[in-house]
Amino acid sequence: MISFESVTKTYPGPRRSAADVVAVHDTSFNVDTGTITVLAGSSGCGKTTLLRMVNRMVAPTSGRVQINGDDIAHMNPVQLRRKIGYVMQHAGLLPHKTVAENIAVVPRLNGATRAEAKRSVDRMLEMVELSADMADRYPAELSGGQAQRVGVARALADEPRILLMDEPFGAVDPLVRTGLQQQLIDIQHELGTTMLFVTHDMSEALRLGHEIILLAKQGRIMQQDSPTRLVEQPANAFVENFLGLNAAEKALRTRTTADGRTMVVDAHGRPAGFLEQA
């Protein structure tokens, strides 16, 4: 379990005279082992700051983060990071290293031999469904979706118990994104990794999260719940707004098509899909 206890992060103001900027104020929550927890909220709500506290890329100004009861402030940050996978929006692959070398980075840092690292690479390429001949390509030769798959493979290569993901699929096109999301669900199911996932996209949050934490400014938790409960029982107007449930243009209507099926259309009459009995 990852627990955040009253964490606060302030940054010095842009000018010396300016007031400190509060990114996160007194936020506490737990992330259960072996689940996907999604931190959702608009830009500037402090979700990335919270995520980066877990691998000590950001140090809380006050409060503490514990992993299985151990305060991470007492751990060596380099050793800690090598045990936690991290995927970011721009894959951040080393441009001068091949796909295989990029995936092998963490196993090699943790002392794996070449042969062991090679086995990890092969296994990971298969897991993220990239063909083996991609191994010798350079990041510049990959599409956005492929680069992101390599980013996921790199983060998982040494089988970390915790995976942090910061809007990993934000820059890929919707079709590819859906595929990557499904793949992530499968991987999580297979490995049982504890995942903390940051997104501003509510549909992504609902699709991936076992638990969703909806944040307002300064990391204020508006609701922490399962996707079903979040939709069925939004705690307040903020949550309703963020889900877009009460917006008139979000309302969906049904229409019967010529071939007798029930089509769902949005407020402007554009097709959103077909209705099927669950």
Partner: peptide, 12 residues
């Protein structure tokens, strides 16, 4: 690229 440096640090 800052994202490359950031990722490298985050990998350990």
């Amino acid at each position: 690229d800052t994202s490359v440096l950031d990722a490298a640090r985050a990998q350990g």
